[in-house]
Amino acid sequence: MSSETQVGESPLLSQFRYGLRSEQIRGALRDVAEGWERRELWMTLGLQDVRQRYRRSKLGPFWITISMAVMVLALGLLYGQIFRQDIHEYLPFLAAGFVIWGLLASMINEGCLAFIQSDGMIRQLNAPVSIYAFRVLWSNLIAFAHNIWVFFAVALWFGVDFNWNLLWVPLALFVILLNGLWISLLFGLLSARFRDVPLIVGSIVQVLFFITPVIWRPEMLPGRALLLDLNPFYHLVEIMRAPLLGQPAQLTHWLSVLSILLVGWAVTFFFYSAYRWRIAYWV
């Protein structure tokens, strides 16, 4: 590659040109496909990540459920009062939104650390690097499987009308996870090179929590501001929250999420084929 480097060109740029040859593009595709094939490995690692956090505690991973329940109840009772909401509708709404938000936020935050945290393994194991992104996804899915019961408990208590729309939920979850995969690959890669990225992303995600209708309802914002429609997280939350609460999600939300998926994967693919081979050097 060094022979192709032009004088004065930034190494990142020359690597980029190098990475966009068909050989590298095929390599990136193979990396993700082979990563999927090693699923026994990353599923075990992901499970281990969750278990490690709660090792030797009596309740183990059910602390995830409990802390989510406490959070939802506390916030629900407080903000239900502040916003003067009917608790029967507000609490299920909050529980659904909060659980989905938890999945999205931790997928992004941990996605940034996907490669950084596994540096030892990356330098010793000849496995496709995408397994570390899959691992993050898997451990988040496990946490989500613990959290979602909080919603179901609240929903049952307040008599939310479960109906056939619930069938949209697995599909929505699947699409959210597909988004999570490109996010981990892309942000994991950027973070490996630039160590401020996880910090920047962390604070942006925190701000987004307040901008996204999770604790407040979209109707509370007068005139459905641009702020709402331009927020990708609004659509990501909504495709799953609406069916959980018994309504179909609007088509616009689905269309937005699908376009995020396409654009995200296109951008990621570009970066991933260009810089995937550098990850082992960066971590």
């Binding site: 060094s2 190494p11 090179r193 630039f194 160590r195 401020d196 990225v197 920047i200 050097y281 960066w282």
Partner: peptide
């Protein structure tokens, strides 16, 4: 040939 970039805190920061 393999060459390593040596990053320090300064070059790793945006």
């Amino acid at each position: 040939s393999v060459s390593f970039p040596v990053y320090n805190a300064a070059t790793r920061s945006i």
